[in-house]
Design a protein around this nucleic acid. Structure first.
Length: 370
DNA sequence: GAGGCGTGGTT
DNA sequence: TAACCAAGCCT
């Protein structure tokens, strides 16, 4: 049984590295080229619990709009929130802005090059600090994300369930991490987990570490890592009121900064509660008609919204609300669940206009396509 | 430590 | 198709 070697993985990475917009490929890193820490940080924050496919267009949009850290630090917060709309986990956008300001203010506009310095910044935890240090500065930090957890749990056939086994995985990852090319090694681990050592049906025949992999030898790689059973996801019900002015402007309000969809826009509505659909008072009296139902699944609950719609004349907005011009809807900080609500009520796409590839290459069905 | 926090792709 | 889950962080 050979020990897993960093060299075997790096040799594989030299041939099979994914080409990604935020990445410096291994042949360029071999010449001493390191990526811009700003781009590494931006991509890593966007990639937290988010797929590469979802991140790509957002990363390019952000980079085109705010090419440098000072540019992002100087940007209006609401612009950043609006640009983040649709990507989810909106506290990341708030922390992104706060982090940019902190680096500009406290670090002369340059990211710290140590794990400790990075981890002290908003929105940068143990994973992201290690990833930036390794990828942007070639610090031999142990970079442990969900991919690495899976690879290492299988490599050493770790039976202890997550998250209890995390410290053991971190220790083993540190043992594997080489002093030479730690940035490439970290990216290679994640590429291996994303393309070969996948959650289901891992392609062990193509794996550079198939020989030393204990789980492959036992034949149960697909069952690792173990996880503790997760709690059941409840369903909550609510009402959403879409008031549409004659010029197509929509009545919206901004959610509180903290908590679910913090800082994002929504249409007025009542509380979201488990049990029977609640009665909710409309923002003002009008001829409210039922426009259908919208379903949306959040991390910890499923939501069913009854959508009410009214076409109304010009009038001042109720307290806490404002009229959003029809032309501005696409560029605003509307989370996906609210885009669904607006589409259900208006039979008109409320999607972001900048999602060229998504719209052109893979148009999503709306409830009106059924 | 455990729960809150989005979304869309995959199986 | 409904469940699963993806480069986690914060409190």
């Amino acid at each position: 049984m050979p020990a897993p070697s960093a060299t075997a993985l790096l040799d594989w990475y030299d041939v099979h590295a994914r080409r990604l917009p935020w990445r410096v490929p291994p042949e360029d890193r071999a010449l001493g080229v390191l990526p811009d820490p700003y781009r590494v940080w931006l991509s890593e924050v966007m990639l937290q619990q988010t797929t590469v496919a979802a991140v790509k267009s957002y990363f390019l949009d952000f980079l085109a709009r705010w090419p440098t850290l000072p540019a992002l630090a100087a940007a209006p917060r609401d612009d950043v929130m609006a640009a983040w709309a649709g990507l989810g986990y909106y506290s990341r956008a708030r922390n992104l802005k706060a982090c940019a300001e902190a680096v500009a203010r406290d670090h002369g506009g340059r990211f710290p090059d140590t794990v400790e310095g990075l981890a002290a910044l908003p929105g940068i935890g143990p994973y992201t600090a290690a990833a930036i240090a390794a990828i942007a500065f070639d610090v031999p930090a142990a970079v442990v994300d969900g991919n690495v957890e899976r690879v290492v749990a299988r490599l050493f056939a770790l039976e202890t369930p997550l998250p209890d086994v995390k410290p053991e995985i971190r220790r083993l990852t540190a043992t594997l991490t080489p002093q030479q090319r730690p940035g490439d090694f970290a990216q290679a681990m994640m590429d291996l987990g994303a393309t070969i050592c996948t959650p289901k049906r891992p392609a062990c025949a193509l794996c550079p570490w198939s020989a030393p992999c204990l789980a492959r030898r036992r034949g149960d790689a697909e069952t690792l890592p173990r996880r503790r059973a997760k709690a059941e996801r409840p369903t909550r019900y609510g009402v959403a009121f879409v008031a549409r002015r004659h010029d197509d402007a929509l009545l919206v309000r901004r959610r509180p900064d903290k908590g679910l969809l913090g800082g994002m826009l929504e249409v007025p509505g009542g509380d979201w509660r488990e049990g029977a659909p609640p009665e909710a008072a409309p923002p003002f009296p009008a001829d409210w008609k039922t426009a259908g139902e919208v379903e949306h699944t959040f991390t910890h609950f499923h939501l069913v919204l009854s959508v009410k719609m009214a076409e109304v004349g010009d009038r001042p907005p109720p307290a806490g609300c404002f009229w959003l011009d029809a032309a501005a809807v696409a560029g605003e900080a509307l989370p996906s669940v609210m885009r669904k609500v607006v589409e259900a009520a208006t039979d008109r796409p409320a999607r972001r206009q900048s999602r060229h590839a998504r719209n052109v290459l893979a148009p999503k069905r709306t409830i009106f396509d059924r």
